[in-house]
Write a protein that binds this DNA or RNA. Structure first.
Length: 227
DNA sequence: AATACGGGGTG
DNA sequence: CACCCAGTATT
């Protein structure tokens, strides 16, 4: 069951308006260089934005280009990564740099399957690179988008019954407005990270509450006894 | 479908 | 202490 066209366009429009007003100014939004976008996305895997920002700057100072990273010692790259965690990530990122140099002449491929064939790049990161570096209308589904779409389009009960992410991926892909993949995906993630948060979502001032399948539940709970 | 993989932050 | 965080790869 897919949402009506009017709900979809309302969702898209209101989210983009929200983003224009409340979107964060993050370092990786100031570049479209694929290598830099990739570095940010690998760092952001299961790692909060505030912890990534300083390490992102430090990493790019040390390895400003994909070629510089490819030429580096992988042990040095690993040490620079600490304490971000998931320490296989820098090893795979380093491998991506070398493989990209060897197979693609040093240019990251603007193709989902080719990106996903690289180590450490899954469906989310491929979508992020496609939309944020190459301006494609590809979808992303991370923990933020999963929560936002789950709440708005499925609601608390139906979300629990979802098996796997295939429905959410299909929904995410159907929502991306033509030509607005970059802004829409950034907006969705910013909204999940700062507004439609896991704990204590800001429902009262939410621009999407009129189309949100979960808002009634929150309102009900608020009348009851939640802090 | 379930689990391993880091480390830091929050209520 | 339990849960959360711009996921991916392997069982």
């Amino acid at each position: 069951m897919s949402p009506s066209q009017s709900v979809v366009s309302t969702f898209q429009r209101r989210l983009l308006v929200w983003y224009a007003r409340h979107g964060r100014d993050l370092p990786w939004r100031r570049t479209r260089v694929p290598y830099r976008v990739l570095v940010s996305e690998i760092m952001l895997q299961q790692t909060q934005v505030e912890r990534v920002v300083p390490k992102y700057r430090q990493f790019l100072r040390a390895y400003p280009t994909l070629r510089a990273l490819a030429a580096a010692d992988v042990g040095d790259v690993r040490r620079l990564w600490y304490p971000l965690g998931y320490n296989i990530r820098p090893v795979r990122l380093h491998a991506i740099a070398r493989e990209t140099l060897a197979r693609y002449g040093g240019r990251l491929p603007d193709d989902g399957d080719a990106l996903r064939a690289l180590p450490g790049i899954g469906r989310y990161t491929a979508g992020a690179v496609l939309s944020f570096a190459f301006g494609r209308d590809a979808a992303v589904l991370d923990t933020n988008v999963r929560r936002v779409l789950g709440r708005v389009f499925f609601g608390p009960r139906r979300l629990r019954r979802l098996r796997g992410d295939s429905r959410l991926w299909a929904l995410a892909e159907s929502l991306v407005p033509r030509g607005r993949g970059y802004d829409f995906n950034q907006a969705l993630m910013d909204f999940g990270a700062t507004w439609c948060t896991a704990r204590r979502p800001r429902c009262a001032p939410c621009p999407l509450r009129r189309v949100c399948a979960t808002f009634p539940a929150h309102a009900r709970r608020r009348r009851g006894a939640e802090s």
